[in-house]
């Protein structure tokens, strides 16, 4: 009996949480469910901030969820299935795997729920549009900046966050291909993967530096990787060039202090904002472009406080 009582007690507590969460029944609003690739990561929190901003601006209800780690493809499926059961007006979806979600997306389409892809696309024409960064072009810009900072020759390496996700593959390819095509005197010694984990990336960086004392620079392909690279550089007292990706308070601090030379930033706030805006446009029956490019920028200590840059950075 106790079991039931305690569970009911816990439930009533959580029902209150639910009630306080948003003006669910306040007005006849659009209910938009965003299923992201992650949650705790500052990048995704910035996407969430953008989505919330759009929600407030247009007076719609937005929920935002994502699995704990970017490897948990099936957990993301469960989230998508639960969101479908909730019968939302529209769904925003950032696929961890470009194919796995297709049956569920088909289900949503059949139920007349419009789908907006964000961050990375799906191998399907179900999403009406994709709000994303051109990661290949963004990483090519990182390669150009790297070449410029090391004087166009020497050894460089990449510490990447994923071997399997689209962004991971695109950012590595964008950087590597640009180096090969445009900078014949630069030698890429290795590409290593730290799963976006700061500590793992730190260790990887240190081993790369110890194996290649004459290394000139490392590119970290997301926030966790970049911070890990910078930490590794500091721990070994090295003075290599570090170029990161994304922002966040730690990375911004490192750029200001010069540990990191610069970084590519996407516009995560814009991604979240554009996704919600696109969903509303779709619900209103407007036509959408195939891709909404949310843009990217290179920033370093010199321009980090420019209003244009500061607007897309997040803590």
């Amino acid at each position: 009996m106790l079991n039931r009582r305690t569970l009911l007690g816990a439930f009533s507590a959580l029902a209150m949480l639910a009630a306080s969460n948003g003006p669910a029944f306040a007005q006849d609003n659009y209910d938009i469910a965003l299923i992201s690739k992650g949650f705790q990561h500052q990048f995704w929190q910035a996407v969430k901030a953008g989505a919330d901003k759009a929600a407030a601006e247009f007076g719609v209800k937005v929920t935002f969820e994502g699995p704990e780690s970017e490897t948990q493809v099936d957990r993301q499926m469960d989230m998508l299935a639960a969101a479908l059961s909730r019968k939302p007006s529209a769904i925003g979806f950032a696929a961890l795997d470009s194919q796995a979600a297709i049956p569920l997306l088909q289900q949503a389409k059949d139920a007349g729920i419009p789908i907006i892809a964000f961050d990375s696309g799906v191998d399907s024409d179900i999403p009406l549009t994709t709000a994303t960064t051109d990661n290949v072009a963004a990483s090519a810009l990182a390669a150009d900046k790297m070449a410029e900072l090391i004087g166009g020759e020497g050894k460089v390496a990449v510490v990447a966050h994923s071997q399997t996700s689209r962004t991971g593959i695109d950012r590595v390819d964008g950087f590597v291909n640009r180096i090969k095509e445009a900078y014949p005197k630069i030698e890429l010694v290795t590409v290593q993967y730290g799963d976006g984990d700061q500590l793992a990336s730190t260790e990887i960086t240190k081993s790369i530096l110890l194996a290649n004392p004459d290394l000139k620079g490392i590119f970290g392909t997301n926030e966790g990787s970049a911070i890990g690279v910078a930490n590794g550089k500091q721990e070994l007292g090295s003075n290599i060039v570090v170029i990161g990706f994304d922002s966040g308070a730690a990375q911004k601090g490192m750029i200001t202090s010069g540990v990191m030379n610069g970084a590519i930033t996407q516009n995560p706030v814009g991604i979240g904002y554009e996704t919600v805006k696109a969903a509303i446009d779709a619900l209103k029956g407007e036509t959408l472009p195939k891709v909404i490019d949310t843009g990217f920028y290179y920033y370093d200590a010199t321009n980090i406080n420019d209003p244009k840059i500061a607007a897309v950075l997040y803590d």
Partner: peptide, 20 residues
């Protein structure tokens, strides 16, 4: 699974889902 699904249906914020 019921817990995870139910909390999502109720649109409970994800950080609170984990706590519960």
């Amino acid at each position: 699974s019921v817990l995870a699904n139910g909390l999502r249906i109720l649109s409970v914020a994800q950080e609170w889902q984990t706590v519960v």
